[in-house]
Amino acid sequence: MIRFLRIAGKRLLGAVPSLIGVIIVTFLLSHALPGDPAVLFAGPAADAASVAQVRAHLGLDHSLPQQFLTYIWQLAHGDLGQSLTTGQPVMTDLVQRLPASLELTLVALIFAIGVAVPLGIWAATRPNSWIDHLCRGTVTVAAAFPTFFIALLLVYVFYFLIPLAPEPVGRLNDVYFDAPTTITGFYLIDSLLEGDWQTFGGALAQIILPAISLGLFALAPIARITRAAMLQTLASDHVRTARALGLSRHRILITYALRNAMLPVVNVLGMVFSFVLGSNVLIEDVYGWPGVGAYAVKAVISSDYAAVQGFILMMAVLYILLNLVVDLLSMMVDPRVRFEG
């Protein structure tokens, strides 16, 4: 356990250079542009006086390294600047909206893993059968659908044509439900903690379509890597040993093949996270989801630059943290990773 923590700490330190890189890039994106960043930050409606004011406020009249230090200083104090559209600090806006996006992202991932991993196993146990081809075909087609298009199609089919899903009005339809008291910020968990099954059902019904839209693209990479990794472990020496010693089919498939196949699957999750986090931007608007993605789109359209920049930085930090989680998961799955450190 101590060894585990030590290595976990090491990985955490290993993420620091990425973090520094991310901060530099977000800084460069806003301060070292062709054109005048002050005009950008002041927004399209600003006059000369307010542009000058913004320039002074942002310290844009200083040298670039000086500006960078100021930027770091502000970041260290949680200051991401002021949003033009909401008039609030960007930090406040983001923190307020983050749980909605995170909940959606996690449910989408659970959906993707829950469908793709069994599909991959199923295909691997019958390689080149019609089931294998069907799985492969299905996930390949799914991967060709743009997330935003899937989102619209699902709404059209399952709300407009066949009214199975509730109206896409965000996390809960507030005509029928009150939002649960904020404990974790995740409606599904908070409603359960309160024992409010009706609200839970309402939140679940709202989240299903957007989560499927987000998760569908991830099916292909996860299912394919699961299939490939399973095929490899099923053909491995240690599975042959397990068969030669008569272990049950179930034991061989789960303990001796699947667990060993999980390492590449866990590693591909990093890529999947990158995609799913990015795609929040594309679908939140369609479902009226009050998350950071929809916020960012509004900010982009109204040239609310501080908000866009804050959003990008936060997503990058989130992604780095998620990759750390992936790292720790792979350490849990494979003792060799744990010992090599």
Partner: peptide
């Protein structure tokens, strides 16, 4: 590494 540290679509959006 720095490019890969971003969710790619978000970085594209920022650019």
């Amino acid at each position: 590494d720095t490019i890969m540290a971003f969710p790619l679509f978000v970085l594209a959006m920022g650019i």
